[in-house]
């Protein structure tokens, strides 16, 4: 691939809970190219969030290296945790650009444009994060993650709790974003439907190791790992007869 890679994790091993604790990632190697969306899937406890935190430089590696751009956007699983509860939403969205060295007026302009492009009306800007609905808060967190033009976006289950319409809108938004600018995106999810809709490449994680890397078509047609098979087998289809027969199994 000719695009530069914006994230390169090589042979990483992590013990997130301290030196005596178990390894949660091992032999973990992954790259994300500019303009590419990679989905990281796996069951609960596979190490998906740990992988994101390692990519963000939030964890000390026991082995291996992480190369990531200085400017990266991190979308935590619970959008409320992206905000200072005392600050207005606008102030929180302005902060990343300020930290990246922009002057105040520019950072503020940028934050407003970003909030507008995410369809958050100016009536909401001066509110504190707790006064926004779940969906509004999710979009505000995305505005904050994008506000400093990151070269890499790390998104932890960004569609959890969103309804299908909002999920699809978020997927479309990320497609527009990777087309118009060029960030790489590492997108954690356990929903294969979302992975299929958003990503070109799917990486399957289990027990802290990558067990498979493929396009969604390859994965659906011929899963090579037990983990991928189990995720596919428990993925309910949008079909009453087939879904019910899966439940009866």
């Amino acid at each position: 691939m000719s695009a530069p890679n914006v994230l390169q994790i090589s042979d990483a091993a992590v013990r997130p809970a301290g030196p005596e604790s178990p390894l949660v990632l091992q032999g973990f190697t992954l790259s994300v190219f500019a303009g590419e969306i990679v989905a990281l899937v796996g069951p609960s406890g596979a190490g998906k969030t740990t992988a994101l935190r390692a990519a963000a430089g939030l964890l000390t590696l026991e082995e291996g290296t992480v190369r990531a751009p200085k400017r990266l956007g991190y979308l935590p699983q619970h959008p409320l945790t992206a905000f200072d509860p005392r600050w207005s939403v606008l102030r929180s969205v302005t902060e990343p650009a300020l930290l990246a060295g922009a002057i105040k007026g520019d950072a503020l302009e940028k934050a407003k444009r970003m909030l507008e492009s995410l369809r958050l009306s100016d009536m909401l800007w001066e509110r504190r994060p707790a006064a926004l609905s779940g969906g509004q808060l999710r979009r505000a967190a995305i505005a904050r993650a994008l506000a400093a033009d990151p070269g890499l976006i790390l998104a932890d289950e960004p569609t959890a709790g969103l309804d299908p319409v909002a999920t699809l809108q978020l997927v479309d938004l990320f497609h527009q974003l990777t087309e118009s600018r060029d960030p790489g995106v590492l997108w954690v999810t356990h929903d294969l439907g979302v992975a299929a809709a958003v990503a070109e490449r799917v990486i399957v994680l289990e027990g802290g190791r990558i067990v498979e890397s493929a396009t969604m078509e390859q994965l659906a047609a011929q899963p090579r790992s037990e983990t991928a098979r189990s995720l596919l087998e428990s993925w309910l289809p949008l079909d009453v007869t087939r879904a019910r027969s899966m439940l009866a199994d």
Partner: peptide
């Protein structure tokens, strides 16, 4: 378009 039924169908590709 923009209905939950439409969006669910678009997000139901894998199998």
């Amino acid at each position: 378009p923009l209905s939950i039924v439409y969006a669910s169908a678009r997000l139901a590709q894998p199998l």
